[in-house]
């Protein structure tokens, strides 16, 4: 299956365009974190004042902490629950599967304000004070559907017989799950987790109506600004830098290590 050079050129060209499109506004956000004035459309000169302003803004810094904390917990819980449920659903009777998936779609479909007020009414009627816990529960609630939606298509492609065969050969269900099913759907689980994390990270309306007193996430900070504060651009730049560093550590270092091991193996051989 050798590819023609022109196709490779075309495909990489296309991917470069897509990435440019996706990163263009990010560059813009980063650029304006160094702007001298408050303007979002006119670059008047280089300055680090918004980084300084960010460092002195305890509400803004606290908002990073809440955003990350909530996103990490919500992603962890919703990935585990979503994966287990999706696998269970794929083996369920069709009527149950359809019903659950239909209800599962509701949070994706409902406008945030409806989900938010619905949850707030739920907490009020259960006599639960809004807090960090209610905020996390709400995030788990709207994250799980995204995980399930991402994993289900992959499960539909799976060959049922493989898991059955594993069970027939004496594997217990747990082994069939972890040794047979999970390895096959692993990329979908990862994608689901990433989407869940992004949804949680960027949510404003639902967070606003379910968070307890004194809890603000980054989105709440951004939406409530009566006056635009480019400190938020500085904060976003910080996020981009940190995540890029993590990406490099996760992806590049193993690659280098692999190359090294290959080289030593070659030497030894």
């Amino acid at each position: 299956m050798r590819k023609k050079k022109s196709t490779t050129f075309l495909t990489s060209g296309y991917m470069v365009l897509i990435l440019l499109f996706i990163y263009l506004p990010i560059f813009y956000v980063v650029l304006f974190s160094f702007n001298e004035s408050k303007s979002l459309t006119k670059f008047t000169g280089f300055s680090l004042r918004w980084y300084e302003s960010m460092m002195n803004d305890s509400t803004m810094l606290e908002s990073i902490w809440y955003t990350v904390l909530v996103a990490v917990i919500a992603t962890a819980v919703s990935t585990v629950v979503g994966t287990i449920t999706a696998i269970g659903l794929s083996k369920s009777r069709r009527i149950i599967r359809t019903a659950v998936l239909e209800i599962n779609n509701l949070p994706v479909m409902n406008p945030d304000i409806v989900t938010a007020i619905g949850l707030m009414l739920l907490f009020i009627s259960a006599n639960v004070q809004l807090s960090l816990t209610t905020l996390i529960l709400s995030h788990i609630m709207f994250c799980i559907p995204y995980v399930i939606l991402t994993i289900m298509p992959k499960l539909r492609q799976l060959d049922d017989n493989v898991a059955e065969a594993a069970l027939d050969l004496g594997a217990n269900p747990w082994q069939a799950l972890t040794k047979v099913i999970l390895p096959q759907i692993y990329p979908a689980v990862l994608s689901g987790a990433l989407i869940a994390f992004s949804m949680s990270f960027d949510d404003f309306v639902i967070s606003f109506f379910t968070a307890g007193v004194g809890i603000n996430n980054i989105s709440m900070y951004v939406y409530s600004m009566k006056r635009y504060n480019p400190g938020i651009n500085a904060l976003s730049t910080l996020i981009v830098v940190v995540v890029t560093l993590i990406l490099i550590t996760v992806n590049v270092i193993p690659a280098i290590r692999d190359k090294k091991t290959k080289r030593t193996e070659a030497k030894n051989a």
Binding site: T59, I117, M120, F123, I124, Q129, L130, F208, F209, G212, V213, G214, I215, N216, M220, Y221, Y223, S224, M225, K226
Partner: peptide, 22 residues
Amino acid sequence: VNYSLFSSNEEMYVKLQSGASY
């Protein structure tokens, strides 16, 4: 000082109905 933020009077009003104490 525990500082919370809102972006409109109406949002703030709905939030108060949850019984949150400011």
